[in-house]
């Protein structure tokens, strides 16, 4: 278990995932004048998902800055601001809209340090509400972790708990390089213990959420909770599942995953992004190349999003991404040598 690095005096209490993010941003705004928030309707509206909430009342419209509906320009302004001394946190209303800003994120933010031979720094944070399950259909439900994870120069994280949502955001703010945070929309209302005060959850470290002997499930974001629910059911059937919360897509925590697969000999990757060429492909390949290979006692399985846009109909929408029973079935098949 990788505990977050904490200040010794921190206390813990229940907050929602959205509240935890807001608390992190409030702490950052209060601590550092260079921190600004930018995004569409993050001011008096409080953000499309009410994540920024009342921050504009506390810090004013210059530091909690509503942008026009200009994803490319807005992201570029955030990059330029970061390049010249501010520490912007840029909120996309939906991660889908980041496709409009790919130029600034991929060509500019990610590469600026490298293109300039280390002479420049772009400490910007992009927050992206992500994932399906809200009935918002094909253009408001996508999971782009693998897209951004494919870009050297970016760091990409996916918090699955309120505690990590805060800790990873503060770690992203402290990071001198651009960080993309995928926040799962279905998790915003999820409550959990959140330490008080400033703490960071290290970027690039996975968390073992449940230990087990028979099978390793590497999951991210909401899939962590589905994997944990499946693990409960499977435990009653005598299948002992280890669940790893990936937390960081780039960099990826090789050590934790390899150590787990060495122990269990079986691996299922569960992720919401489209299955093909996704995060699971990377983890599978990483295991195949690692010394965990010799410990594999079954094929690696990937459960990912369907090869289709996210549909509107609720049953179709559920069918388009892995659900708890899908994870249970895959685990049973793997352990019972049906695959």
């Amino acid at each position: 278990m990788n505990a977050p690095t904490r200040h010794p005096e921190v206390q813990s209490r229940e907050l929602s995932y959205a509240e935890a993010i807001r608390e992190a941003m409030g702490l950052a705004l209060a601590r550092d004048e260079r921190v600004i928030l930018m995004g569409e309707d993050i001011g008096v509206y409080g953000g499309a998902f009410q994540v920024t909430g009342d921050l504009v009342e506390r810090f004013g419209p210059d530091r909690v800055r509503d942008t026009p509906i200009s994803e490319l320009g807005g992201a570029g302004v955030a990059v330029g601001a970061a390049l010249t001394g501010l520490r912007p946190i840029f909120e996309f209303q939906f991660s889908d809209f980041a496709t409009l800003a790919m130029e600034q994120i991929v060509n500019q933010a990610a590469k600026m340090r490298y293109m300039l031979g280390g002479e420049a720094s772009v400490p910007v944070v992009f927050r992206m509400p992500s994932g399906s399950g809200t009935g918002a259909a094909a253009q408001h439900s996508q999971s782009f972790e693998a897209w951004f994870g494919h870009v050297p120069g970016l760091k990409v994280v996916q918090p699955s708990t309120p505690e990590d949502a805060k800790g990873l955001l503060l770690a992203a703010l402290e990071d001198p390089d651009p960080v993309v945070i995928f926040e799962h929309k279905l998790l915003y209302k999820m409550k959990g213990h959140v330490p008080e005060g400033w703490y960071t959850t290290p970027i690039g470290k996975a968390a073992v959420r449940r230990t087990g002997r028979d099978l390793t499930i590497v999951a991210s974001a909401i899939m962590v909770h589905r994997a944990l629910a499946a693990a409960e059911t499977l435990a009653a059937e005598g299948i002992d599942v280890e669940v790893i919360d990936l937390r960081s897509v780039r960099p990826i925590d090789r050590e934790t995953i390899i150590a787990s697969v060495r122990k269990t000999g079986r691996l299922i990757c569960v992720y919401e992004g489209v299955r093909t060429l996704g995060v699971g492909a990377e983890i599978s390949a990483m295991i195949a190349e690692s010394d965990a290979f010799d410990y594999l006692d079954a094929p690696i399985l990937r459960l990912g999003g369907a090869e289709a846009p996210i549909p509107y109909n609720p049953d179709l929408e559920k069918a388009a991404v892995p659900q708890t029973p899908d994870i249970e079935t895959a685990a049973r098949r793997l352990v019972r040598k049906e695959v």
């Binding site: 000999g265 290979f293 010799d294 410990y295 594999l296 006692d297 079954a298 040598k337 049906e338």
Partner: peptide, 24 residues
């Protein structure tokens, strides 16, 4: 055979060709 089975057979000096597997 799975990689784990191969590794175990290697360690034990066992010829996998003599075994019949229980997997698919």
């Amino acid at each position: 055979a799975t990689p784990a089975a191969r590794a175990a057979a290697r360690t034990a000096g066992l010829d996998l060709a003599r075994l019949v597997g229980s997997g698919p």
